Amino acid sequence: MSVFGMRTSNPAFSSYFWRKKSYSRQKMSLGGIIFKSFLMLGLVAVTASYTWKIFFEGTDIKWHTTIGGFVAIVASLFISFKHNSAKWLLPIYALAKGFFLGGISAYAHKRFPGLPLQAIAVTITTFFVMLFLFKTRLIVVTRQFRAIVITASITIFTIYIITWILSFFRIHLGFIYGTSNFAIAFNFVAAIVASFSLLLDFYYIERQIGKAPKTREWLATWGFLITLIWLYVEVLRLMKKLAIRF
C-alpha cells in the first residue's frame, strides 16, 4: 500500500529513489552513511553555533534564521528532483539548516535557559530508542504501519504549509502554534510521528545496504537529516509550549 505513490514519509526513501537504475560497482554501506551523517551534522553545528554566538552578542539574527530556513527548503527541493545533486547540495542544506536551528534554539534559550540542550538530549535518546525497537523487532515496520505514518506525516506537513501561507496574510492559527490543549496535543502527535518516521528510514536503508549504489549514501544521509531535524524542532516546540503553559 502506498500514499500518493510514496512508500515512506521521507522523500529521500520514496519508491522512485530506490527504483532509479545505476551501474556503480560500489554499494551503499552503513559505515558510509554514518560517516556522511556525522559530517553533515558537524556542518549544522558550525552555523548553528555561529548564529547562537552572534545572537547573544547582540546581533539581530532574524534574517539568518529566515534565509537559512528558506535556502534549506530550496536545496531540499533540488535534491528531491535531481538526486545526483545531493553530493553537492547536501552541505549547503546542512549549513543553511544550521542557521535556522541556531536561530530558533537561541530564541528558546533566551526565554527558557537550557531548553535547547534538553531538546537535543530528548532527540538523541529518541533516536537510539527507535533504533533499539527496530533492531529488536519490538515494533515491526509492516505495510499498514508505513501507510499510517506516511498519511500522518503528509497531513502534518500540509497543515504547516497552510499555516505558513496564511501567515503572509497576517492570519495566525493559535490552535496550532499557541499553548492551548489542542496546540500541545498537535505538537505531541507531530513529535511521535517524527519518531516513527525514523523506523521507516531504518527499514528502507537496511533493505538497501549492499544493494543500492554508493552514491545513494548522500541521499540516505539527507533523509536522516530531514527526520532528525524535524524531530528536534517538534521536541523543542513541544517543550517550549509546556514551559509557557506550566
Rank of each mutant, 00 (worst) to 15 (best):
R170D: 14
F168R: 07
R137N: 14
V140P: 05
T151I: 11
A152V: 03
Q144E: 15
R146S: 15
W164P: 00
L133M: 10
I150H: 01
T151C: 11
V149T: 03
I171G: 02
R137M: 13
R146V: 07
R170I: 09
T142P: 02
S153E: 05
I156L: 10
W164G: 08
R146E: 15
R146Y: 07
Q144I: 15
I159V: 12
V141T: 06
I162A: 09
T142Q: 10
A152W: 01
V149F: 01
I139C: 03
S153N: 07
T163V: 04
I139A: 05
A147Y: 10
H172S: 13
R146T: 09
A147Q: 13
L133G: 04
T158F: 09
L173M: 06
L166Q: 05
R146A: 14
K135A: 12
T155I: 09
F169K: 10
I156H: 01
I139E: 05
T142A: 14
A147R: 10
F157A: 07
K135Y: 11
I154Y: 08
S153F: 04
T163I: 03
A147P: 00
F145N: 00
A147T: 11
Y160Q: 10
T163K: 01
W164C: 05
R170L: 12
F168N: 11
Q144F: 15
T155Q: 04
R146C: 10
I165Q: 05
H172K: 11
Q144V: 15
R170N: 13
V141S: 02
I150L: 08
K135D: 12
R146G: 07
I162W: 03
F145C: 00
T158E: 05
Y160P: 00
I139M: 04
I159Q: 06
V140S: 14
H172Q: 12
R170G: 10
I156A: 04
Q144R: 14
